[in-house]
Design a protein around this nucleic acid. Structure first.
Length: 466
RNA sequence: GGCGACGUAGCCAAGUGGCAAGGCAGGGGUCUGCAAAACCCCGAUCGCCGGUUCAAAUCCGGCCGUCGCCUCCA
């Protein structure tokens, strides 16, 4: 079976073939660090974490680069407003975001470059573009990319140059040769962070950083370039123009774009002010909830995000966790054991078939839920031992591809365990004596304290509520 | 205005030519002293109208609706 990937560049699903066998070079656009990151950013990071984890599951070695844009107009504006150093402000959010990624169980990218640490490469690339006639410096010290020199400009966003230009509402600089030309380098204004360059003090434009970082960490050509679909134009369009004009080679083989999170029917964004920050989300929910919700739909489609969806996600997560409850019997043979083994095989095959198809996590998750049912049915049928452990092992392997931790609430569990168990021993005696009122009272009171007691023919079990 | 995406059961949502996954909610049942959990069973002809095809949710055209990009944006 081969993996197929939907490529924004061709608008088609294509077989996945890497530049180097077994090696994947993947670059994903990260955030501009001027403010608190929201769940939309988290979604993008999680989507490409799914991609990475699945490719690794399939045996690829993945070099995964995610950038931080730490030099930018908004960062400067924000820092001025707060009376803070722009670099310090950016640095703070960079560290915050890395911590948030950890808490979201996103595998650390193999490199996390920042614009401020890639200035030399950026300058070198701009010089190269000027030499090749694709860029020009202006008297005031700006450098622009000359869009007309790129014959296939607009191929990613399917925009004709004239259209792209006529739609532009930005006041054009007098010094630009063409409306569509975009800045590679911006001359410094007083009080702004700046670096020395052949064109005087200044700082990089928005798009050149990603081209330079790609080149530095992954080379002239890469396999996967990812990001939110709001970056298709102009960011990724310009990135292609710069890199391909510089190298003369096709840049990324597969352009992958995730859909936007929808909040109250609108895209979640800072400018609309309708956002939920990652910290706010994690204060209320387990990271697994976000992963289950995101995995439950196609990564390219807009994703509904509201309290109903989150509540459904919580319940779905509980159901997933139910598969990890221990066996209650020790049967290892017979029809039930064989049926379990069959279901495990089928679930794994279905999971892979779905994921091979453009990382269809919704289909993969469905296969996992089928496995949950099989495991729970086997437990009910008294299966235990190796067959049961194997099934749970596969379950763990597959849920790990989706980055699910599936840890139940455990805070303080160690310390309360002896007391809860003592209560259950006493309660067991009460039940033997058919003292239902009292034994039910214990169960109800424990529940009120967040301890769920469940009785079964094999005895009573307990666990913490969420 | 230009470019693009989407519209599947109460809700979320897979599936892109051959009898419509999964989750949540709901109903019925098994188990149980009861409760819970788990397990079993139950639901849609896929926005509307035409067309292509032996066959369409899946392809083509039109209409309606929602959303995104065109300005910083995951």
């Amino acid at each position: 079976m081969t993996i197929v990937v939907y490529n924004t560049l061709t608008r088609e699903t294509e077989p996945f073939e890497t530049l180097e066998p077994g090696q994947v070079r993947m670059y994903v656009c990260g955030p501009t660090v001027y403010d608190e990151a929201h769940v939309g950013h988290a979604m993008s990071s999680i989507v490409f974490d799914f991609v990475r984890r699945y490719l690794e599951y399939r045996g690829y070695q993945v070099r995964h680069v995610m950038n931080f844009t730490d030099v930018d107009d908004k960062i400067i504006a924000r820092a001025h407003k707060l009376g803070e150093d722009p670099a310090a402000l950016a640095n703070r959010y960079v560290e915050r975001y890395q911590d948030q990624l950890d808490r979201l169980n996103v595998r650390r990218p193999t490199a996390l470059p920042r614009v401020s640490q890639t200035i030399d490469e950026i300058i070198a690339m701009i010089e190269g573009l000027i030499e090749r006639g694709h860029a020009y410096a202006t008297p005031s010290g700006d450098v622009y990319f000359r869009v007309h020199t790129d014959a296939d400009y607009g191929k990613l966003s399917r925009r004709k140059l004239e259209e792209a230009v006529s739609g532009t509402r930005v006041t054009s600089s007098e010094e630009k040769l063409d409306e569509g030309d975009f800045a590679l380098w911006k001359a410094a204004k007083p009080g702004e962070p700046s670096w020395d360059s052949p064109w005087g003090k200044g700082r990089p434009g928005w798009h050149i950083e990603c081209s330079a970082m790609n080149m530095r960490y992954l080379g002239e050509q890469i396999d996967i370039h990812g990001g939110g679909n709001d970056l298709i134009f102009p960011h990724h369009e310009n990135e292609i123009a710069q890199t391909e004009s510089f190298t003369g080679k096709p840049f990324a083989r597969y352009w992958m774009h995730n859909g936007m999170l929808q909040l109250k029917g609108e895209k979640m964004s800072k400018s609309l002010g309708n956002l939920v920050t990652i910290d706010e989300f994690l204060a209320e929910h387990d990271a697994d909830v976000l992963r289950v919700v995101i995995a439950g739909s196609g990564y390219r489609k807009p994703l509904m995000f509201n309290s109903d969806v989150l509540a459904d996600g919580e319940r779905a997560l509980e159901r997933l966790r139910s598969a990890l409850r221990p066996a209650t019997g020790d049967g290892t043979a017979g029809p039930a054991a064989e049926q379990l083994a069959d279901h495990v095989r089928a679930a794994r095959a279905a999971f892979e078939a779905a994921m091979d198809n453009d990382f269809n996590t919704a289909g993969g998750l469905a296969a996992i839920f089928d496995l949950v049912r099989a495991i729970n049915a086997a437990r009910d049928a008294g299966i235990g031992g190796e067959p049961f452990a194997d099934a749970q092992g596969v379950f763990r392997t597959l849920t790990d591809v989706l980055g699910l931790r599936l840890a139940g609430p455990e805070a303080g569990e160690q310390s309360i365990a002896p007391f809860v168990e003592l209560l259950l021993v006493v309660r067991q005696d009460l039940r033997k004596a058919k003292q239902w009122a009292l034994s039910d009272k214990i169960r109800d009171e424990l529940k009120a304290l967040g301890v769920i007691v469940e009785d079964s023919p094999q005895g009573s079990t307990w666990r913490l509520a969420d």
